[in-house]
Write a protein that binds this DNA or RNA. Sequence first.
DNA 1: TTGAAAGCGCTAACAC
DNA 2: GTGTTAGCGCTTTCAA
Lengths: 341, 341
Amino acid sequence: MAATMKDISQATGLGLATISKYFNGGNVRERNRVLIEEASRRLHFTPNEVARSLKTHRTRAVGVVIPELNNAFITSIITAMEDPLRRQNYAVIVCDCRSDPEREKEAVDFLLSRQVDGLINMATDYTGRHLRAALNAGIPVVLVDRLIAGLEGRVSAVVIDNARAAESATDALISAGHRRIGLVLGSPKLYTTELRRQGYLDSLRRAGVEPEPELVRHGGYTMDGGYQAVEELMRLSPPPTALFITNFEMTIGGMLALEHMNIHVPEDVSVIGFDKVELFSNLLPQLTLVPQPQVSIGRECAALMLELLRAGRERTDRVVTLSTQLMAGTSVRTLTPGGRG
Amino acid sequence: MAATMKDISQATGLGLATISKYFNGGNVRERNRVLIEEASRRLHFTPNEVARSLKTHRTRAVGVVIPELNNAFITSIITAMEDPLRRQNYAVIVCDCRSDPEREKEAVDFLLSRQVDGLINMATDYTGRHLRAALNAGIPVVLVDRLIAGLEGRVSAVVIDNARAAESATDALISAGHRRIGLVLGSPKLYTTELRRQGYLDSLRRAGVEPEPELVRHGGYTMDGGYQAVEELMRLSPPPTALFITNFEMTIGGMLALEHMNIHVPEDVSVIGFDKVELFSNLLPQLTLVPQPQVSIGRECAALMLELLRAGRERTDRVVTLSTQLMAGTSVRTLTPGGRG
DNA sequence: TTGAAAGCGCTAACAC
DNA sequence: GTGTTAGCGCTTTCAA
């Protein structure tokens, strides 16, 4: 059994309150400080966080609920947020819900029963039903990557400028002379999917290009989905002269599809991808893409959460929108004004 | 403030003990069961796990300390272990130490102060110093992927048969007629590195092939490291006729190096890789490799931990070794007996 | 089966 | 600056 403050109290002859105050940064007479430190070392004492939590009603734990742990985009965000949180002595409890709304709700309830001080959530359930209990409990919630309609003002969030990102990518293709631009999106209804669709459509509209439904495909943000979507797009007649693929996995899948179909980039088709994942950036060295700032997203999340936690009841929820910028590679070819074939 | 048992007690007119017993699966009169359930629903009551932990000295939390969260091999193991643990109502607290022994020790201490019931660790510090406090505290420790010399009998572990895996991969190259086999390892001294080296050397020895130090390189298990190691190996004269690359990242890096050097597989050089990561299996479709059973590793870890947790003080630590099996692709070419060039 | 009561290890009044 | 004490929400004897 580990040593308790009582043990330190007995060993030093000091009262419990003094020991407690010492461990909470209070002022203690130099002589007693030494006594306490010595006894603590000798008895391997560390304050029991569980007891502390019960008393203070704060666990110094934040729950993180994500759709999938096995995903480089997500883990790089988590890695980035873990650091500042841990530095403030917060434990991070990660729950992966496999993109299942049912499990997502279970995860939230589970975390609430563990009395986490705050919740960070890349939401699977776009209705936000799973968060109700957390909101009722009054703990701060920070959404990441995806906003939830109807929760405005009740939660904070960190997102990127999805619509603008998609718009400027499409703009780039249009200014290179492309008119027939294939779009590969994630699952319908997902926050990011819809905003990226919006940006694409806005760009087309401004350029006076009539959107063609057959050019828009859903690849479910998976590699297989991307593969299939690109394959289908390139089988159209005429095929698109350019593709905009809106996440990392689908971009990899799409590039594979092109390779297998023996279609060259950018000679036969121009491509703009999404996300830059460290490990694999070398795989697609020359791809023009919209990198997401995962590290900033993660840090911003942590900072926002810490701020909310500090503010307590008087907190003000807010949405942080990070901007992105197209990163030019050599995968976009400028079409000569004359022709298309 | 959330409802407590006291509230339920008042609402139902029952004693605290009865409520508690109900929530711990004890027998309660039917009429009271209904009362309790009704009141709990109405007041949104869930037992406060923190209070429970303080009383029972068990937090139902296990700490997981890993070198890096941003790693597909590791996340697939964690994903696999999270499931069974959560099903038993255990929280999983993951700490990533960035392969820094200092941070690793901090993570262990942090988790101990949170009174985790057990520790799962893919160790960075091969001396095991960081685990001392955990062992003193008497909580079960399960090592994953890497054993630590000197801790035998005091910890459990789940590993693969590294030496045999490397041996059979090398055997395969040797029976295909290769004698000059380049080996790309992780960092020296790491458990897996040394055993894989061992297996390679054993295979050569049995075949009567003199090992050549210049053919063994360390790529630090990173993609860049693999790239560089393979580049160096292929610049030797004569270059090796086959390569055995001992993890996933280095295999990707190595394949890139070969591509950039315009060296074809298997025409110019045979390759056996390591690890199979779902997302990217399609990238190297025909590669002969040694897949690690990440899912089994994760599940086995969870099962072992749950077993140790159940056994309490009378637990018996043990090491689970999972076997691997070479997965044939088309990246190994059989050399004709006559020639080498 | 149920209830009263003690106590897990700590914090925070409050009095000194 | 320090000590005394009540109590956080729960589990667990023990007696009824």
